Simulated assay, not measured.
Amino acid sequence: MLNLSNYIIIALASLSAGAVNSIAGGGTLITFPVLTALGIPAVAANITNTVALCPGYLGGSLSQGKDLLNQKKRLWLYIPAAIVGGLLGGILLQVTPEVLFRELVPYLILLATALLVFQPIVRSYLTRRTKTTGAQPGSDIWGVVPVGIAAIYGGYFGAGLSIIVLAVLGITVDDSLTQLNALKQTIALITNLTAGLFFLFSGMVVWPVALVMAVGSLLGGALGGKLAGHVQPNVLRWIVVVIGLIVATLYFIR
Rank of each mutant, 00 (worst) to 15 (best):
S124V: 12
L166M: 08
S202Q: 13
V241C: 06
A11T: 08
I30Y: 06
L236H: 13
K73T: 08
P208D: 08
Q185M: 10
A182C: 10
Y125R: 08
G220C: 05
S176W: 03
Q232K: 13
L35W: 03
F32G: 05
S5T: 13
L227G: 03
G60H: 01
K226R: 15
V117E: 09
A228S: 15
N234H: 09
A222Y: 08
L62A: 02
G216C: 14
L62Q: 07
A210H: 12
T130E: 15
D175P: 12
V206S: 09
T96P: 03
Q119L: 06
I239M: 14
T96G: 01
T133C: 06
L108A: 02
Y156G: 00
P97Y: 04
S16N: 06
K131Q: 15
F118H: 05
V168T: 07
T48W: 00
V84C: 02
A222H: 11
G65A: 12
G148A: 14
I243A: 11
G89D: 00
H230I: 09
A214C: 10
F252M: 10
A188H: 10
V20H: 06
L2D: 12
I8G: 14
R123C: 03
L197P: 11
M213K: 11
A19L: 14
L87I: 09
T191S: 10
L111M: 06
V215Y: 08
I109V: 11
V212M: 04
V242T: 15
L35D: 01
A82E: 00
L88V: 05
P55T: 02
G160A: 03
V242F: 12
V122S: 06
E98P: 02
M213Q: 14
F118T: 02
A210I: 07
L245F: 14
G229E: 06
A214F: 05
I8S: 13
H230K: 15
A112C: 05
N234G: 05
P106N: 07
R128H: 11
L177A: 11
W207F: 13
G220T: 13
K184Q: 12
A17K: 09
A13G: 14
A19F: 03
L200G: 13
G244H: 10
V105S: 00
R128F: 09
L58S: 10
T48A: 02
T178V: 07
R123E: 14
G25I: 04
T132N: 12
R74W: 03
Q119A: 10
G39M: 04
V240L: 12
T130G: 07
K73I: 01
V145C: 15
N192T: 09
D174G: 00
W207G: 11
V212N: 06
